[in-house]
Amino acid sequence: MTHPPGPESCPGRASRLLESVTMTRFLSRLGAALLLAALGAAAARQSPRHDLTVFAASSLTDAFTALAHAFEAANPGAHVSLDFAASSTLATQILQGAPADVFASADRAQMARITDAGLQQGSPAPFAGNRLVVVVPAGSSIKDVKDLARPGVLLVLAAQQVPAGHYADAMLAAAAAQPGYGPAFVQAVHANVVSREPNVRQTAAKVALGAADAAVVYATDARGLPDVRSIPIPAALQPAIAYPLVALRSGADPSGAAAFRAFVLSPAGRATLAAYGFAPPP
């Protein structure tokens, strides 16, 4: 580093000293600012706001965001924190002690992990249904479920333990016994699977990003995606998809949890779910 010549007798050392003083001052100010920010964050945490934590399946992202807003509007002072992930991820987190008040799962198997551990308050209630579709990029040559068996198709499914992946496996198992598909079709489709994603939204995103040729997701996931077309899957191959909802004992606000559960099951709640493309529970 060079310094402009100054009037001092020893310009280099003086300006370096000055620099180090300025630096020390800067660092101590930065430290103070960080400390204040940390204290502020801690204080904000302790505000007496009524916080309800809702864990919901990835596919519910849009519908439950709307439901939470409607719930907050109907219950002044209430604040809903939402956490979306694969139902399997959420169930694992709840079993490991995550402080959730409500759990909305995309299948019964993940809900059973919670009820088997006795963490529920009341019984789980089915509140929605769904259908599987194949999503492809808008200009894709894939027109039918049967095209998924074509060699070279990059197919993405959700992971096996994730409900959407479990349903996709059930769909393929049904296809094995179905005339027009059969075991050869299923084997060819399995050979085309290039990834099993951590949740259904990431599965759909792989097609939206143009990385994969096709993905099996819920009909509701395809709705908001740009440049993506969805191909219906025949009724004979559709698994029964049921979303159960439960209020948890482990949360911080058991009465709020029960109120949110009732709200989702109410006519207004069901109307919101229908507006986002969800079917009534099977």
């Binding site: 992971a159 990834s195 099993r196 994603e197």
Partner: peptide
């Protein structure tokens, strides 16, 4: 997980 996906 983003560029390569996850396949056993």
């Amino acid at each position: 997980i983003v560029v390569a996906g996850s396949l056993a």
